[in-house]
């Protein structure tokens, strides 16, 4: 017994001692980058679209840089947990974040304090515009019909796509404001995302869904659902039959995006290395094929261009949040 007690004490002291010693730091001017495994943080669950894109980049980065690259799903809090993990990671370029659309909206909604300025943006890898999607047997043939229906019975048309105040809810709120409607003229039923909303739509429990066309691709291609309009500058390739809301005279664009970022204060040489490597991957045929197979929109903006895009997104969504009366 005495022996085990002594051992216990010894082990504990050993632990204390080891805790006190700081782990050795590798000099990071970027010359030896990468010197350990890389991690891509995905703020959404395994199996979803963002996870699939993250895993594609992990695989390609591993081949390009020769270090094992792992995808870690840090889910929850409407994306806040994963985005925060990316911002607070050690700024040595070994931890990347697959940031999403929510980074542009969640600080405005009071979910998180994070903005794009807490990161060093590397490059945008995807953009999918918001779209209004209905059942194939819906009486509405165009977005004009939908607006007429909303005007005829305010608060009776039911839509979903995310939680109330979530990304796709803001997209449709902005659309309604641009069309001269009140935000409350549509009854938004909260769900956890596009997949459960599509189930509700197919079951006839709601009238329309606001999400990207890619998220409803299998139902659209099999003829169960139909895109009414897409909130983009131009029609989306692969869904050429779906008109833009601009064609109906409504000046509104809502873009969901995905992009890779690293923590602020990552040394410039490392950022440059990562940008160059990632740009090669994002412009490769393999990536184009992958995006096409998944019906994701291919959109690459590197460095400054990506930063400017993020700043513009921020301004756009702040305006919508204020106008819709969503600000806390």
């Amino acid at each position: 017994m005495a022996m085990s007690k002594a051992l216990a004490l010894f082990s504990f002291l050993q632990l204390c001692w080891l805790t006190a010693c700081a782990p050795p730091q590798t000099a990071s001017d970027g010359s030896d980058f990468p010197n350990r495994n890389l991690t891509i943080i995905c703020p959404w669950a395994a199996g979803g679209g963002t996870d699939r894109v993250s895993r594609f980049f992990a695989d390609q980065l591993e081949q390009a840089l020769g270090k094992p690259t792992i995808v870690t799903n840090r889910t929850g809090g409407g994306g806040a947990v994963g985005h925060s993990a990316g911002a607070t990671a050690k700024p040595d370029g070994h931890t990347l974040l697959m940031g999403t659309f929510e980074l542009s909206t969640m600080h405005g909604m009071g979910i998180s304090h994070l903005t794009h300025e807490d990161y060093e943006p590397l490059l945008q890898v995807n953009a999918d515009a918001a779209a209004i999607i209905v059942r194939s047997d819906s009486p509405w043939a165009s977005v004009g019909d939908l607006i007429e229906a909303i005007k005829a019975a305010p608060g009776q048309v039911k839509m979903s796509g995310t939680a109330t105040g979530g990304a796709w809810d803001l997209a449709r709120a902005g659309f309604q404001l641009a069309a001269g409607l009140d935000v409350k003229d549509v009854l938004w039923v909260p769900t956890e995302g596009s997949a459960p909303s599509i189930v509700e739509l197919l079951g006839g429990h709601i009238d329309a869904v606001c999400c990207s066309l890619a998220e409803a691709a299998s139902q659209i291609e099999s003829g169960q659902l139909r895109g009414l309009a897409v909130m983009a500058e131009d029609r989306v390739s692969g869904f050429d039959g779906v008109p833009t809301v601009k064609e109906a005279g409504i000046d509104w664009v809502a873009m969901g995006w995905r992009g890779l970022l690293v923590a602020k204060d990552t040394p410039a040489p490392i950022v440059t290395t990562l940008r160059e490597t990632l740009q090669t991957i994002a412009e490769s045929d393999a990536y184009l094929t992958f995006m096409k197979q998944n019906r994701f929109g291919h959109e690459v903006k590197v460095g400054e261009a990506f930063s400017d895009f993020l700043a513009a997104q921020d301004a756009q969504w702040q305006k919508v949040i204020a106008a819709a009366g969503y600000a806390k």
Partner: peptide
């Protein structure tokens, strides 16, 4: 013991902290 282990692991590393904890616990 478990709290000390969880506190120490991030800086000490998995291998060393686990060897210490398991040796101690099994002996105990």
């Amino acid at each position: 013991g478990l709290v000390a282990y969880a506190v120490a692991m991030p800086s000490v590393g998995f291998a060393l902290s686990t060897v210490t904890l398991v040796t101690w616990m099994a002996t105990w």
